[in-house]
C-alpha cells in the first residue's frame, strides 16, 4: 500500500535525485520458538537533501529501516540501495544517532566529540580539529562540560554530546532514532531548531524516526506513517511548509494543525492495533 496524501503540494518538497531507496523490503527476526516478521514489504524512496520522518506505533519496524540504511542489518528479502548501490556493509556515509546514546563512558565529552578525528580514514581532514570540537560543543550547549564524563551528565546532555559527535564529521546523511526523546519540552524545541539550521545550511539528507507527530511535521518535508507490526507503509504525506521553519512558532499555524490532524487520522488506528496485540 503506498498512498500519497495531498499530492497537489509535492512541488514544495525538496525533490533531489533519489538517495536512499527501499524496494519490497521484508525483515524477519528469529526468536527462540518462531519467526517474527518485523517489516513486511516496504518500498520507499528518499531524495537527496530531503528530510523524511518515519512515524508509527512502537515495534512497527521504523528503527529496523534505519539499521538497514546504515548497513547494520540486511533485509530478509527485497533491496536497500544508497546512491544507487546496494547497501552491503556498514554505510560510512551516514551519521547514525541511536535511541540509546553510544558515547564511550571512559572518555570525556571533548574526547567523545572529537573521536572521529582520531580515525585513520578522517585524519587527513584539514583545519584546526581542537577548534572544531570546541565550536561544536558550544553549539550544542555543552560549553563548560568539556572535561566531564558521560556519567556526570544528564540524559539530555548526553544526547547533545552524541549529536555533536555525529555532526562534527559532517556526514552527508543523518539517521536519527528518537534523537530528542529524552529532552524536556523547551530544550527539545531549541534542539529541533538547531538541527534544522544545521541541516538547511549543509543540505544534508535526514531520516528521522519519531513517535511524536508534531516533531515529524515541524521538521520533515515528507512524513511516512507505518502500520503496527508487521510494519508496512500506511500513508505518505508531504509537508510543504516553507523553510526556514521555527518549530517553536510553527505549531500555532493552521497548516501545521491540518497536517497533524490528517496524519493522526492515519496513525490512530495503528496505535490502537498495536496496543491490542501482545508483542507490540
Amino acid at each position: 500500500m503506498h498512498m500519497s496524501g495531498q499530492t497537489a503540494f509535492t512541488g514544495a518538497a525538496k525533490t533531489g535525485p533519489t538517495l536512499i531507496s527501499l524496494k519490497d523490503v521484508v525483515v524477519d527476526f528469529a526468536t527462540r520458538d518462531r519467526v517474527v516478521r518485523a517489516v513486511d514489504g516496504i518500498s520507499l524512496d528518499m531524495p537527496e537533501g530531503g528530510f523524511t520522518a518515519l512515524v508509527g506505533p512502537s515495534g512497527c519496524g521504523k528503527s529496523t529501516v534505519l539499521n538497514m540504511v546504515a548497513g547494520l542489518l540486511k533485509p530478509s528479502a527485497g533491496s536497500v540501495t544508497f546512491e544507487g548501490r546496494p547497501v552491503d556493509g556498514p554505510n560510512t556515509r551516514v551519521g547514525y544517532m541511536t535511541q540509546k546514546d553510544t558515547l564511550l563512558p571512559w572518555r570525556t565529552v571533548e574526547d567523545n566529540v572529537g573521536i572521529a578525528f582520531e580515525l585513520r580514514c578522517r585524519r587527513s581532514e584539514r583545519g584546526d580539529k581542537a577548534a572544531r570540537v570546541a565550536e561544536m560543543i558550544e553549539r550544542v550547549g555543552l560549553k563548560g562540560f568539556e572535561k566531564h564524563f558521560p556519567s556526570e551528565l544528564s540524559g539530555g546532555m548526553r544526547k547533545r554530546a552524541a549529536l555533536a559527535r555525529m555532526l562534527i564529521y559532517k556526514p552527508s546523511t543523518l539517521l536519527l532514532d528518537e534523537p530528542f526523546g529524552a529532552l524536556d519540552a523547551q530544550l527539545r524545541l531549541i534542539m529541533q531548531k538547531e538541527l534544522l539550521e544545521l541541516v538547511d545550511a549543509s543540505g544534508m539528507t535526514v531520516v528521522l524516526v519519531t513517535h511524536d507527530l508534531e516533531e515529524a511535521v515541524s521538521l520533515a518535508d515528507k512524513v511516512v506513517v507505518f502500520t503496527s507490526r508487521p510494519g508496512r507503509i500506511r500513508a505518505v504525506r508531504d509537508i510543504p511548509i516553507p523553510r526556514p521553519r521555527d518549530p517553536a512558532t510553527l505549531r500555532f499555524t493552521d497548516a501545521f494543525r491540518d497536517h497533524c490532524a490528517a496524519l493522526w487520522d492515519e496513525l490512530r488506528d495503528e496505535v490502537a492495533a498495536a496496543m491490542a496485540t501482545p508483542h507490540a
Binding site: 546504515a70 548497513g71 547494520l72 556498514p90 554505510n91 560510512t92 551516514v94 551519521g95 547514525y96 541511536t98 540509546k100 553510544t102 564511550l104 573521536i115 572521529a116 580515525l119 585513520r120 580514514c121 578522517r122 564529521y169
Partner: peptide, 13 residues
C-alpha cells in the same frame, strides 16, 4: 555492540 557499531559507521577499522 552498539558502541562498536557507532565507531564502525564513523569508518573505524
Amino acid at each position: 555492540e552498539e558502541q562498536l557499531d557507532a565507531l564502525t559507521l564513523m569508518g573505524a577499522s
